[in-house]
Design a protein around this nucleic acid. Structure first.
Lengths: 314, 314
DNA sequence: CGACAGGCTAAGTCAAACTTATGCTCAGCA
DNA sequence: TGCTGAGCATAAGTTTGACTTAGCCTGTCG
């Protein structure tokens, strides 16, 4: 009859449980949006499989047996507990958002704004992991990511935040020294900080100055925001995003060392698996993030007004 | 997402619960005797429907999330409780047998034997309801019945116990008076007790005596065993079954008032719904009952050796 | 008495459940 | 290092338990 782990058809148990609550097959059918014949069939199968009389039948009604009532109590409790656990898990799921993002964006741009997100969405705890490499969004480890790229990632939904651009930035004290970026007669007296490939692209876009030799470059640091920190300290001219480091500019710790802003067509995106489109927390974070990005794009308008796009050499 | 009473697909929950226990879709599939693809599909559907990440996926394994683990605990507990309630109900069902039977058979024949049934099957509690009318066996109120008839009841399984026959029985003191049943010269000095239709059939089978007028019949009592009680008290000659009332004969309280035993082809049957054929308690009771009936048929062999069958007039 | 509600059953239908085939990523081993 | 096997994923196709429909029966009520 009933083996060790075997359980009767759960569909039958579901039909029985509803019939027991209503003491009526017709009412159970209405609740389950099915027919009384289906309920009758399932209860009969259950009785046959288990050998337990669950209902006494009368012409126009049914009556639970003692055994039937006992099983029904357990069934109702079991389904209620199951339901509650899903509701609880879904609610808990909506209170934690795990985000993977690039180190400079996370450190310099996002983190300073989190107070505003927390104020707006007190119930959502944000967990941010910084990584220079794009993390997998399918395995379930992360809910969403902020990435730099062209936004053509299969299976992911993408929302553009702001363009990925760069320009020379330096401490105000180096404003005079920085004029050498535009003057072939002047010698560059401080090192160039940041990604050499960006500097190469910048000089290419500039078009009227040769790329300085490698000896003019500072040490290669592991993230953009470290180059910027060195520039703030007056150690050279860094190449970086006027959006990501806007707070430094606004505070007067950095100034544009040259007016030319270069881009490669890349953008910063907020992205998540398409299957997660219904997630309320992802939606809330996305909406807030888009507002923040729009605000920063607006504030950076003088820099973004005239971006010179260059093709990266592959 | 999840409405008030709605529960996700129970098949999906079942697959998830097994996968959670094993932390492996492949192992769950083996337990459920299905494929890993099926388990994977169900878990995915469940995650999609509930919005809850239940597992983190790695190339060759899966890992429960916190939420997944919580839901799994509830699911395992729910299924275990359900299973236990069915096992318990099935066990309880096997300890109670409700039988409907005819009054005389129940009172005079079956009840005196119940000690032997109880001794043999201590765990089965017998509940007997006496009724002159055949009770419904389909509604679930009764497990089985002992009926008198031809045994052709649709949907029921039948086991013959002993033939339904009748003969004149009286107290020993009326043995001389009873000779009038065979002697046209003698006047019947005591009333005839019991069913007038049986007396009519008996005289028809006799063939050498006219049926006495209605004035020779005693009052119409509601059950055969009451007629017999009156006969034991010497109030007349009763017509009844030498099997049902064998104990009175053995004790010398009654003697056959005439040797002729008449039957109409009817039998006493033990019967139950065919769908209940697997019931252990019904099987146990049937086996015991058949033994008792066989024993009584053997003891009544002198009476049953030569039964005169007459057709009832319809 | 007729209408209706609510059970039952058998035959037929259908959609969720399941299978098969293929692909991908590791881990372990020679 | 290359090969094998295990264990996930997905899409297309198949199957079967779940469900529907039609008809019947029994009460209840107006």
């Amino acid at each position: 009859m009933l083996s060790t782990r075997h359980l009767p058809s759960l569909a039958s148990i579901r039909a029985f449980e509803a019939a027991a609550r209503h003491c009526s097959f017709a009412k159970a059918a209405r609740e389950l949006d099915t027919t009384a014949a289906s309920v009758s069939y399932h209860v009969r199968c259950l009785e046959q499989e288990t050998g337990v009389r669950l209902f006494l039948r009368f012409a126009q009604r049914v009556e639970l047996t003692e055994s039937g009532a006992a099983v029904a109590r357990e069934a109702t409790a079991a389904f209620d507990a199951l339901r509650a656990s899903f509701l609880h898990a879904a609610a808990a799921e909506e209170t934690r958002l795990s985000l993977t993002t690039l180190p400079s964006l996370g450190t310099s741009w996002l983190t300073p704004k989190l107070g505003r997100f927390r104020a707006k969405h007190a119930s959502i705890a944000l967990e941010i992991e910084l990584s220079a490499d794009a993390q997998d969004l399918v395995g379930g480890r992360f809910d969403a990511a902020i990435r730099n790229g062209y936004g053509n990632w299969p299976g992911l939904r993408t929302h553009a935040l702001f363009p990925s651009v760069f320009m020379p930035l330096c401490a105000p004290a180096l404003r005079e020294t920085a004029k050498a970026l535009d003057d072939p007669q002047r010698t560059l007296e401080v090192p160039l900080l940041g990604r050499p490939d960006w500097w190469a692209l910048w000089y290419r876009a500039h078009g009227r100055m040769p790329l300085p030799p490698a000896s003019h470059f500072g040490p290669l640091l592991s993230a953009e925001y470290l180059d910027i920190a060195a520039a703030v300290a007056g150690q050279g001219i860094a190449i970086g995003s006027p959006i990501l480091f806007r707070s430094e500019i606004d505070a007067g710790r950095l100034v544009p060392a040259h007016a030319l802003v270069v881009g490669t067509g890349r953008t910063f995106w907020f992205t998540y698996p398409a299957a997660r489109a219904q997630s309320r927390k992802i939606g809330a974070f996305r909406d807030w993030l888009e507002d923040e990005a729009a605000r920063d794009r607006e504030a950076a308008r003088p820099f973004l007004r005239k971006i010179k796009i260059v093709e990266p050499q592959s």
